[in-house]
Nucleic acid binder design. Structure first.
Length: 313
DNA sequence: AACTTCTTCAACCGCATCTCC
DNA sequence: CGGAGATGCGGTTGAAGAAGT
């Protein structure tokens, strides 16, 4: 919904925006119809040539984005459920801003949707708890000031009014449908339990991912490049849905093991021998409360399906 | 009712990486 | 090996609508 800008505005135009006369901005129902009909008939891909063949005055990128985020039949619309939110939080702690990876494990949700939800809801929620949403670590008490403009009290109360704070489930407590105070003890418990786990969990995730042939590191701010587009790097080839999954399944089975304590303990012993020097022992009480991410012996139905699914976005 | 401020989220941009030749 | 083109990702923008004054 951005205001159309001149195609010559950028110093070095990308190929898709160099052509003048291409339409920008919100899609009309007619355009949606054209795109959906074409893709149903011809299939996804070849985005550059697709608009012309489909009779659309759009660039390929725009068509791809519209299809991926809105028109695909598998896209689920509507409110993010509590268990989805919980899963996003956990995956984000492990993966950072790898939105497409996170989305790949939440059926029907797109990377864009999750990114937006994170930026508009979850990051604020974490900040309100004194947690840095990028690192999942405590904000510097010196610098943490809830009255700061980024999360003014006015904004917070507004936020609470609009959307009564949902309990961030640790999986152990029952969620309430009532409006819950922001300083909910269980929530605090969830975050405090998780804070200490963050460093080590991410270390393990990094280690495993690197061992699978991916490059780069998971970082707390999500800025440096772990190549998880690296399905192709792994030699898997054309990235259709099937291939995408086979490329990331190993990673996610490992993430699953991090999230599911029992499986994690087994995985740690069997598959990740090198991390023991830095990872706490699985018998350590600390590990039970932190590597289990506060959800010992619990796995939500969504979590199970997300982590075991064979389809991807 | 009118105006201002805030929030949401669809869409765009730049860039990294891949494949193909 | 290197260049060109294609694809996909994460960050950012800004219009529209909601909420506040």
């Amino acid at each position: 919904m951005r205001k159309p800008t001149s195609a010559t505005a950028t110093a070095k135009p990308t190929p898709c925006c160099i052509k003048v006369g291409l339409k920008r901005g919100p899609w009309t129902p007619e355009e949606d119809e054209l795109l959906a009909t074409y893709i149903k008939k011809e299939g996804e891909g070849r985005w550059r040539t697709l608009p012309k063949k489909a009779g659309l005055l759009r660039c390929g990128k725009s068509c791809r984005l519209r299809w991926m985020n809105y028109l695909r039949p598998s896209v689920k619309r509507g409110q993010i459920a509590d268990d989805e939110e919980d899963l996003i939080l956990r995956l984000h702690r492990l993966l950072g801003n790898r939105w497409s990876l996170i989305a790949g494990r939440i059926p029907g949700r797109t990377d864009n949707e999750i990114k937006n939800y994170w930026n508009t809801h979850l990051s604020k929620k974490l900040i309100s708890q004194g947690i840095d949403p990028r690192t999942h670590k405590p904000l510097d008490p010196q610098s943490f000031d809830p009255s700061k403009p980024s999360l003014s009290k006015a904004n917070l109360s507004q936020e609470r009014q609009k959307e009564p704070m949902k309990t961030v489930s640790s999986g152990l407590e029952e969620t309430t449908s009532d409006s819950t105070p922001i300083a909910n003890n269980k929530e605090n418990e969830y975050f405090q339990n998780d804070i200490n786990a963050h460093l080590d969990v991410q270390h393990l995730a990094n280690h495993f991912i690197a061992s699978q042939g991916y490059t780069g590191l998971l970082t707390y701010d999500g800025t440096s490049g772990m190549d998880l587009r690296g399905n192709q790097r792994l030699g898997i080839g054309e990235a259709d849905d099937q291939d995408i999954n086979s490329g990331t399944d190993d990673v996610f089975s490992f993430l699953n093991s991090l999230i599911n304590e029992e499986a994690f303990q087994q995985h740690q012993i069997l598959n990740v021998p090198h991390v023991n020097s830095t990872a706490p022992s699985s018998s350590d009480p600390f590990v039970s409360s932190t590597f289990g991410l506060g959800m010992t012996g619990w796995e939500s139905p969504l979590m199970s399906s997300a982590l075991n699914q064979n389809d991807s976005k």
